[in-house]
Design a protein around this nucleic acid. Structure first.
Lengths: 282, 282
DNA sequence: GCGGGCGATACCCGACGGGTATCGATCCGG
DNA sequence: CCGGATCGATACCCGTCGGGTATCGCCCGC
């Protein structure tokens, strides 16, 4: 199976429409139809059920969609990491670390400083990304290592080491009546009238239903809190970057958050191993 | 990057010889040389340092070897799993479970029986494999799920659930002087004169240096123990399949062995999820 | 110095990927 | 109920590219 065939199939399986898929792929529709037929013939399996008005995935087709995406990610990762390894001879970034913008604001500088002090340290590029993006960045090779936050992020398919565990705090507008309380319970935060919890994007980029504003990163979030539109429960390390007009109140019954350093299982280069070692010793 | 190019590169990188690699791939040498050059040109990276007498990997080349193998495994897995999904409409194996031959001899039948009693259970094929083979079988799609034994097997890159933890016992010839002791210590087992510990193959198939016999599976092993050539420390569940002329003595200070059920992270089909659920409830 | 091994180059051919034109089926609006 | 629109399949052509053979250039060892 060639990656071209896989890309074609994934496009059709996602669009469920040969014309649109062909446009997305930058080719005409007939070669695409032919390529899918050939793929089906070679696999000896029907992937798509098509009558002349609609296209639907068979059971085998959805298996190939899932597995094919993973395979294409792996190929893309090989491509990107090889390119980087080739250019790194001079001073290109030796490692790319992905982390949610605004998270781990205490840990990250400590980690970078400690690693930079190591012998044989290579340059580290920090890739600030949106919520839940880290897994994909690691899998398709745009990042080598990431900081994740349990229990929010999924670590399936990644190797991890635990770094720190911290309690959570509620972040409120400074003037809010509850902002002067010594602590709050989850139930109180969730039912704050007029301050619905914000909605984060899911893995596929869509947002869950709800009242709160849709947010992508912490900058957005803090501004919305300052404007009195929402409130949120976050790990206590966010305190270091709170704006003056925000208040943080401990929430003892919120689940503890564990920060882990994560990397794709098979790619443990020497610089990566050194970075992980440094992180676990902090 | 096409999988053909990756297969070509991996072959050359493994052989470090264009002629041999071409023979292995079933093509002539010139097209192979050209394909590698094209790949290098497209990536903008030198992968192989070649003078007319020898071929060596560059740093970027070894990155591509590692990442490329993973990518090819993922593509192979997509191929195999799709084929199986397509043929499973009638009664082909719905799930393939890999386990070390001779291990988990108590757990496995219980698991299979319990799963078969579930509604919607699909046929399960059991693939008995050698030591350390499970990871590769899972990654390239020949198996869907495996039983691994910590701390011996690596679970990097796999999702797992713990099933049982057991102590280990020393397996000795029945007539051995230590066979009647109520328990032994690791130090005693390791220094049994004339009974060196057997050597298991490493991930790459090679054997570590040492005195003991090279073994691949439990059948070999038990026969060698009965012959008085070796002794070994294994999880206590091996007792159920010990030959009459072997004795098992508890070794309290040997590390406990945890059996886990493992599967590739992205492929959690409905039958697989049911099997995992059944396993964790045993 | 010469033969042999090895990768690179030159050149040819056939297969296959991609494009355009068109068909056949189905749905929809009038 | 009919005509147009939509969509996948088919037919056919062309250019590219993957693969083969022949040969070269280089370097080693005898």
């Amino acid at each position: 199976m060639e990656t071209r065939e896989l890309r074609y199939f994934v496009a059709v399986a996602e669009e469920l429409h040969f014309g649109r898929a062909a446009r997305r792929l930058g080719i005409a529709q007939p070669p695409l139809s032919r390529a899918i037929r050939q793929l089906e013939r070679r696999l000896g399996v029907t992937l798509l059920e098509r009558d002349s008005r609609s296209v639907a995935l068979t059971a085998a087709g959805s298996v190939l969609l899932r597995e094919g995406r993973a395979a294409l990610d792996a190929v893309d990762a090989a491509d990107r990491r090889t390119r980087r390894a080739g250019q790194a001879v001079n001073g290109g970034p030796g490692l790319v670390l992905a982390t949610k913008a605004g998270a781990s604001s205490e840990l990250l500088p400590k980690l970078l400083d400690a690693y930079a002090a190591e012998p044989d340290a290579v340059p580290v590029e920090v890739l600030l990304c949106g919520i839940g993006e880290q897994e994909r960045l690691l899998r398709d090779g745009r990042a080598d290592v990431a900081l994740l936050h349990l229990p929010f992020d999924s670590t399936t398919g990644l190797d991890t080491e635990e770094l720190v565990t911290e309690q959570q705090v509620a972040v409120l507008p400074a003037g809010h009546p509850l902002a002067r309380r010594p602590h709050l319970l989850m139930a109180e935060v969730e039912t704050l009238s007029g301050l619905p919890m914000p909605r984060w994007p899911r893995a596929d980029g869509s947002y869950p239903e709800g009242l709160g504003p849709e947010v992508r990163d912490h900058a957005q979030l803090f501004q919305l809190i300052a404007l009195g539109r929402t409130a949120v429960v976050l790990p206590e390390s966010v305190r270091t970057l709170l704006l003056a007009d925000l208040a943080a109140v401990p929430v003892p019954d919120a689940p503890a958050v564990t920060t882990v350093i994560a990397w794709p299982p098979h790619s443990r280069s020497r610089p990566l191993a050194a970075l992980i070692r440094t992180a676990t010793r902090l």
